[in-house]
Computed example of a mutant assay.
Amino acid sequence: MATPRVAAGVIYRDGQGRILLAKPTYKDGWDLPGGYVEPGESPLAAARREVVEELGTELPVAGLLLVDWAPHPSEGDKLLFVFDGGTLSPDDYARITPDGEEIDRVDFHDPAALDQLMPDRLVRRVRTALRAGAAGAEHYAEHGAAVLATTTSTS
């Protein structure tokens, strides 16, 4: 029976369509705010907890954008959930205070620059999640590439 590691992250945007990324102190590159799900915790609860821990404030965590099955060569099977945090106001951004231990800093970045900021597997996942959000859909992905899409209903 599979026992994957499970993680959850959140995509936040600013009014210009840039994505909020966090710069971890413990690894190269930038990442989405988020982290591993703890035993007995749901992916949504983990995303909300990690946002508070890493960014120092509560921010909205809304709909699901993506579930990605993405085994890692050194970590084994992984399931990664990406949630939509919506657009942050300047006041929301001003409340962010990175913890300084796990997250050094945060900043908004143009989605076109992701290739220079993070590993390829994460770039694929973020871009697939952004396409899901733009289409009003939830995607199931494998290694960051959409395999199935479900259009979400607002009624």
Rank of each mutant, 00 (worst) to 15 (best):
D31M: 15
R95V: 05
V52F: 09
R49H: 00
W69Q: 14
S42M: 02
V52W: 02
L44F: 08
Y36L: 14
G34M: 06
P73G: 12
E38D: 12
E58P: 07
S89W: 04
L66D: 11
V37S: 05
L44W: 04
A94R: 11
V67H: 09
T97I: 04
R49W: 01
R95Y: 03
P43Y: 00
G35F: 11
G85Q: 00
S74R: 13
D91F: 08
L59V: 03
E53W: 12
G86W: 03
E75K: 14
G76S: 05
D91L: 02
D68K: 14
Y36K: 14
T97S: 11
D31H: 15
V61G: 02
G76E: 07
K78C: 03
E41T: 09
V37A: 06
L66I: 10
R48I: 08
D68H: 10
G56W: 07
E38P: 01
P90N: 08
D77V: 00
E41N: 02
P71R: 09
G40D: 11
E75Q: 14
P90C: 02
L65G: 00
G86D: 00
T57H: 07
F83P: 01
D92E: 07
A62G: 13
D91K: 06
E75C: 02
G56Q: 11
T57C: 13
L59R: 01
H72F: 06
F83Y: 15
L44M: 10
P71I: 04
G76D: 05
L79G: 01
D99T: 03
T87C: 05
E38Q: 15
I96Q: 09
W69C: 09
V51C: 10
P90I: 00
A45G: 15
R48S: 11
L64P: 01
L80R: 15
A45Q: 14
L64Y: 11
A70P: 05
A45V: 13
L88C: 08
H72R: 06
Y93A: 13
Y36S: 07
R49M: 05
V51L: 07
V61T: 07
L80K: 15
V67G: 01
P71S: 09
E41P: 09
P33Q: 10
E41M: 10
T97V: 13
E53L: 15
P60W: 12
R49Q: 07
S74E: 14
L32H: 09
G35N: 08
K78D: 04
